[in-house]
């Protein structure tokens, strides 16, 4: 792990791992979609609409996981000031934002036929919307500050402040009387879902996790390249200033 903290070694490692990770993500996604759309039975109350759950729940887990990765990276930025921690923070933000958006949109499309409404200001729904706004704020902050080290420190502080929302999202259904149902998979006492629906859900969760990790590694590689380009351009500009050929 410490060996990978060197950006050049990380680039070589990520370059070797990325194709396998992407292939595993594609294969597990294909199996997951087959299980979710064809094999899983309709629910006795929800009917076919239950199939939205196989997309909605893994997206919600990934939204929380990517923010947790950002929070760990933020600690790496503030405590050790490691450049790869900055890069990890920046690469995770758009992925987390996209999965949060998928979670909200699919939840809304499930809510209309099941609850009779697209949206309610329920504690779970509202805290996930706050999570999406946090992601948007973090992306905006990255775009605003041009100098990467300054931006990373500012984003790290914002990320750690925003982390208080993660337990609120997770436990909102236990702390408050919400329309959103309580946890039925990650709970004390084990899952309450029938195995015929649990397996498609778990396969889709594995597929989404592999996809998110592949996108994160790819995003980190791209960000390292972007910083190398920036450094080269700054050096070229300094040489021009001194009157030497670029």
């Amino acid at each position: 792990m410490i060996r990978l903290a060197n950006p050049t070694r990380f680039m070589a490692f990520a370059g070797a791992v990325l194709p396998w990770l992407a292939a595993a993500a594609a294969a597990s996604l294909a199996v997951g979609l087959w299980l979710a759309l064809i094999v899983a039975p309709p629910d006795y109350q929800q009917g076919e609409t239950v199939r939205i759950m196989f997309l909605h729940v893994p997206a919600a887990w990934l939204a929380l996981m990517m923010y947790s990765i950002m929070a760990l990276s933020a600690i790496g930025t503030l405590v050790w000031r490691h450049p790869l921690a900055d890069v990890s923070q920046k690469a995770a933000a758009p992925i987390g934002a996209a999965f949060t958006l998928v979670c909200l949109v699919t939840g809304s499309l499930w809510g209309k036929p099941m609850w009779g409404t697209w949206w309610v200001w329920d504690a779970r729904l509202t805290s996930v919307l706050v999570l999406l706004l946090m992601y948007c704020g973090i992306l905006a902050l990255w775009a605003t500050l041009e100098e990467p080290n300054r931006a990373a420190r500012a984003v790290a502080i914002l990320t750690l402040v925003g982390f208080v929302n993660i337990p609120i999202v997770k436990f909102s259904v236990d702390w408050w009387n919400t329309l959103h149902q309580p946890a039925s998979v990650l709970r004390v006492g084990g899952p309450t879902i029938d195995p015929s629906m649990l397996w498609p859900l778990l396969v889709m969760a594995v597929a989404f996790t592999l996809l998110a990790l592949a996108l994160h590694l790819s995003g980190m590689r791209t960000e390292i390249l972007r910083r190398r380009i920036r450094t080269r351009r700054i050096l070229a500009a300094e040489r021009l200033d001194r009157g030497a050929p670029a």
């Binding site: 759309l37 309709p42 009917g47 076919e48 609409t49 199939r51 939205i52 997309l55 909605h56 997206a59 998928v102 949109v105 699919t106 499309l109 499930w110 209309k112 036929p113």
Partner: peptide
């Protein structure tokens, strides 16, 4: 029901 499922998967 299938229309909502299709819309959700298309959005995803």
């Amino acid at each position: 029901h299938w229309a909502y499922v299709a819309a959700a998967y298309a959005a995803g």
